[in-house]
C-alpha cells in the first residue's frame, strides 16, 4: 500500500497580533479609581438578644457605638431564604428605633447578609431584601429615611466562617452600622 506524504504548506497559521496580550503582564497593576472607604466598624460576635428594657451597663457612654452594640443589639437574624422579620428581630429593631430616635444625629447603614447556601448573585438580592425589611421597620417606628442607607453583602462577609447550621444561622443577618453621629 502506498503511503502519501502530504506536502506541508508552510503557512504562518498563527497570525500573532499579540502585543496586547503580552503588554498586559508588563503593565503596572492598575488601582481601582474609587477611594477606599474606611473599614466598617467591626462588630463583636453576635450578642444574645438583649431585651429592650435591659438596664444600661455602667462604663458605657450613652449614645456611643458601644452603647448601641451592647445595650441595644446591632444585628438581627433571619430564617433560611427568608427576609421577613422574626419576633426576636422585631424586639431588637424596636430597641434600635427607640435608640435612634433618642440620638437623631446618628446615621446608619443596614448591611444585609446571606449564608453560603445559595449562589452568589441570588444572595446579593436576598441580602438586599433583608436590609430593606429592617429599613422599613425602622422607618415605621419613626426613624427618618434620610438617616438610613442599605447595602447587601450577599454571602461575601460572613460573621461566622464555618460551614454548619450554626454558622449559616449567624450569617443570615442584617447588621445596623452607625456611620456617623454616634458619640
Amino acid at each position: 500500500m502506498s503511503i502519501k506524504t502530504k506536502t506541508v504548506v508552510k503557512t504562518a497559521l498563527v497570525a500573532f497580533v499579540l502585543t496586547s496580550v503580552a503588554a498586559c503582564s508588563d503593565k503596572p497593576k492598575p488601582v481601582e479609581p474609587t477611594p477606599t472607604p474606611p473599614p466598617v466598624a467591626t462588630a463583636p460576635a453576635p450578642q444574645p438578644q438583649p431585651a429592650p428594657t435591659q438596664p444600661v451597663q455602667t462604663g458605657i457612654l450613652p449614645g456611643s457605638q458601644q452603647d448601641f452594640v451592647v445595650n441595644v443589639g446591632d444585628r438581627v437574624y433571619f430564617d433560611t431564604d427568608q427576609s421577613s422579620l422574626r419576633a426576636d428581630a422585631q424586639g431588637v429593631l424596636a430597641a434600635q428605633a427607640a435608640w435612634l430616635n433618642r440620638y437623631p444625629g446618628v446615621k446608619i447603614r443596614i448591611e444585609g447578609s446571606a449564608d453560603e447556601r445559595g449562589t452568589r448573585e441570588y444572595n446579593f438580592a436576598l441580602g438586599a431584601r433583608r436590609a430593606e425589611s429592617v429599613s422599613e421597620f425602622l422607618i415605621s417606628k419613626g426613624v427618618a429615611p434620610a438617616r438610613i442607607s442599605t447595602i447587601s453583602y450577599g454571602k461575601e462577609n460572613p460573621l461566622n466562617p464555618g460551614s454548619d447550621e450554626d454558622a449559616w444561622a449567624q450569617n443570615r443577618n442584617a447588621h445596623t452600622s452607625l456611620t456617623s453621629g454616634a458619640r
Binding site: K4, T5, K6, T7, V8, V9, K10, T11, A12, L13, V14, F16, L18, V21, A22
Partner: peptide
C-alpha cells in the same frame, strides 16, 4: 499523515 503545519510567533509566546 493527518496534519502538516508550521506556526511562527515571538519566542515569549511559545505557550500560545
Amino acid at each position: 499523515q493527518l496534519l502538516g503545519q508550521s506556526m511562527t510567533a515571538t519566542p515569549e509566546n511559545w505557550r500560545r
